[in-house]
Design a protein around this nucleic acid. Structure first.
Lengths: 195, 195
DNA sequence: CCTACCGATCGGTAGG
DNA sequence: CCTACCGATCGGTAGG
């Protein structure tokens, strides 16, 4: 009985997780407004009304994509900043991790966060902002370390926003398998911003 | 007769231009998919069917926003690159002009180009890409001048894309009248990318 | 999780 | 450029 309940809950969780994953993929490709509940249901082999057994609304699916995307990548980057690497390697590791999160195939969650932010209803934003802030603090900490080591001109907030923007905007032009690898891109970005 | 025809044509052109301007504003605020033809018609005091007297489809309005946005800012930036300023000032002037285009209040056209690109149908993209390429060539030329003057590490295409991304992404976080002015932002960006 | 459905809204058109 | 309208699609729900 306990086993069956656990199994049932796990199966429910899996279906829910499937929906979030499918939604992330579709939102990334077509945008939130360009994706219908029916598209998401089709992608996991459900009927059009069934996603509402798992989520109260389409907005709740969007929030889940953003929240789970951040929760799944925060441990890695917070591990990097807490680690003992010298500043330059720390920066390079963070850069590389972020590029992976944003550009690697199958990584759809953070791009949705970045490019469908305005589609998220104002009431749902606060919770996600709290997680974004954790992510931003990691970057700020690493930039401050770099600055103290004399390896970068500025660790101002604006400098950080410009740097992160340079990388985040690469979603718009980077094509996996064409042009350069993620490692080469990380090198170019690092070389550009370090003294 | 000629005067009346001209006047009639001008009035038509004005109504069309009004629609494009209203659409740009709405697309920037709510996205292409989040804006209905009725929203656009309302904004200029027309009934819902009337925009189709000026445009064949909603897609044609989007293409007009992007095309007119590029056509109206290209002369200024092409003037900068063709001018006689030394490399550093040329770069600074280009940076400043681009920030204006992208962040100043009432400048909605280029943000739509940057953030609703995927909403533009593939058939309509080629024409806009040709104009974008002209814009990109201006930047590339200025970066090459900078590099020859030994003022920047790299004038590779990737370096240019990262730099332009840093600025373009500022639409997502910059708030006019809060934090810093466009001039200060231009200084910070220039200081960051110059040796 | 499916069936069957609802009201609202969408882009677009015919005819004037 | 308006009136009046169309078929399609949307997010969401009741009842099982």
């Amino acid at each position: 009985m306990t086993a069956q309940q656990t199994c049932g809950a796990a199966a429910d969780g899996n279906r829910r997780a499937e929906l979030v994953r499918a939604a992330a993929r579709l939102f990334r490709d077509r945008g939130y407004d360009g994706t219908s509940i029916r598209d998401i249901a089709d992608a996991v082999g459900m009927r059009s009304g069934s996603p509402f057994y798992h989520f109260k609304s389409k907005q709740e699916i969007l929030a889940a994509v953003m929240e789970e995307g951040l929760l799944s990548c925060l441990p890695a980057v917070e591990g990097i900043v807490a680690g003992a690497l010298p500043p330059r390697q720390k920066f390079r590791a963070l850069l590389r991790a972020h590029l992976e999160t944003v550009l690697a195939e199958g990584h759809d969650f953070i791009p949705v966060l970045l490019y469908d932010w305005r589609a998220l209803s104002p009431e749902r934003r606060a919770g996600i902002v709290a997680l974004r802030d954790r992510y931003d603090r990691v970057w700020q900490a690493v930039l401050t370390e770099l600055q103290r080591a004399g390896m970068v001109k500025s660790d101002s907030k604006v400098a950080r926003l410009l740097l992160m923007g340079a990388i985040n905007f690469s979603i718009q032009w980077y094509q996996p398998g064409r042009g350069c690898t993620l490692d080469e891109l990380a090198d170019e970005a690092a070389g550009m911003f370090l003294l």
